[in-house]
Design a protein around this nucleic acid. Structure first.
Lengths: 250, 250
DNA sequence: TCACATTTGTCCGTATGTATC
DNA sequence: AGATACATACGGACAAATGTG
């Protein structure tokens, strides 16, 4: 009906405005602003429908977007309403996994990129890690060691977590996000590989040597160990790929 | 009713199974398998509802997830059904932007990380770039130069695209994904900054010098120019942040 | 332990705007 | 221009799940 406002605001309206998009954006805006914080609860769907003056179906589609994006979490039953959470990193990791499967990225491609990314992060971590970061790394390794006898799953998860902690030690949240994405894919591959307590043990040993080098401020040594560590895991992936464990392109 | 299968598959069923989740996954699976390819069309909502034996609302929520994830695109009117597309990279970029706003990442944090990431990618690009990649870079710069007089928006977008092309030249799709995420944020900041044809001109000149160094196989020179280039843009962000252009944390 | 109220998940019918033929 | 097909959206309804008293 009416023209496009003016020539000022460009490239917005690819999609004609849809009610659930507007509502989703509005709620997101409140979260960014801090009006809604993780732990808070949104009104129930019917209540939201009343407040926004739309039907419940529209509200549900808006909530669906927010849920997938990692802003809210829903549960049936007597809870008072959708819970505001912050699982955005998780959502990004899932998107990364989608891209990997869609693009049919090969494991050697992943290993090559992972090697460079982790080295970049480790360099930053060596420079910026605080005592608390080192402590967290130690606690992580202690947890992994504890999981080695009995709880394989715990050892596995702690070993993945180790790399996220390295990213946190870099004091740069961009690295944290990137590492979260990488570990999502690595974890996916490794879970396809099945439990391998021998690999977990070797991985943990390498982690311990990396931290030791970090504490000695020997960046080059830490990088060397990390490099062998990543290539080691990558070789495991490649062998598994050759045995056709992975259902999508090696 | 029935127990959780066995102790084998762990940590899956946090959420009770929801029909739209299952349907979304099923369609995604068909896309990964190649049964559905970009350009294909899904059946209409009512048809899907019949085939899956569920209501339209359930289908709609499943489609909403697929749309946000970048797998399908919907259009009103007489189209035959949802279109299968591949805009996953776009979706990841949007998620990154969400994380940035949620985590209140500072522009200097972004610049620091971007510097390391782009250097990493450029090194890989210098090693692996094909003739076609170089050609694409030249075409990009030609387009940017054309946009400089008159179409500021084009120059802006081409300059962003340049970095994505660098990532493609690395022949590693992981880098492409990471770069897509970074450029989403950089582009967001720069669009907040408003059109600045002087900056665009300077940026283009630096792009041209980088490519020239790449063609001369002078990696160090290319890296040096890139470094100054990124820091230059970062300074622009910082000045803008000090002038409080950005509505969220500098 | 046992209802009860609340809320989400799902379905159906209907209306409307819009794009394609 | 008209007809058709489809997405968007509304409202009512019931089932299932969950927290509370």
């Amino acid at each position: 009906m009416h023209q496009q406002e003016s020539g000022l605001a460009i490239f917005h309206p690819i999609k004609p405005k849809r009610a659930f998009d507007e509502i989703s954006s509005e709620i997101k805006r409140l979260i960014f602003k801090g009006t809604l914080k993780p732990g808070d609860r949104l009104p129930s769907e019917t209540e939201l429908a009343n407040q926004f003056g739309v039907g419940r179906q529209t509200i549900r589609e808006a909530l669906r977007l927010l849920e997938l994006s990692g802003f809210i979490s829903m549960q049936k039953g007597g809870a008072k309403g959708p819970l505001v959470v912050d699982t955005i990193l998780n959502s990004i990791g899932n998107s990364f996994l989608d891209a990997f499967q869609m693009k049919r990225i090969r494991v050697d491609e992943l290993t090559t990129a992972r090697l460079e990314i982790e080295k970049m992060v480790l360099r930053a971590a060596c420079t910026n890690a605080t005592k608390d970061d080192i402590k967290a790394l130690h606690e992580n390794m202690a947890g992994a060691r504890k999981g080695l006898d009995g709880n394989e799953q715990q050892a596995f998860e702690e070993n993945i977590q180790f790399h996220k902690l390295l990213a946190r030690a870099s004091q740069n949240y961009v690295f944290v996000i990137v590492m979260e994405s990488i570990t999502a894919v690595v974890g996916h591959f490794r879970s396809l590989l099945g439990v391998d307590s021998e690999l977990s043990r070797r991985v943990l040993n390498e982690h311990e040597r990396i931290v030791k080098a970090m504490e000695a401020h020997d960046v080059d040594k830490a990088l060397t160990i990390l490099e062998r560590h990543i290539l080691d895991v990558g070789e495991g992936f490649k062998r598994a790929a050759n045995r056709e464990i992975f259902d999508f392109t090696i």
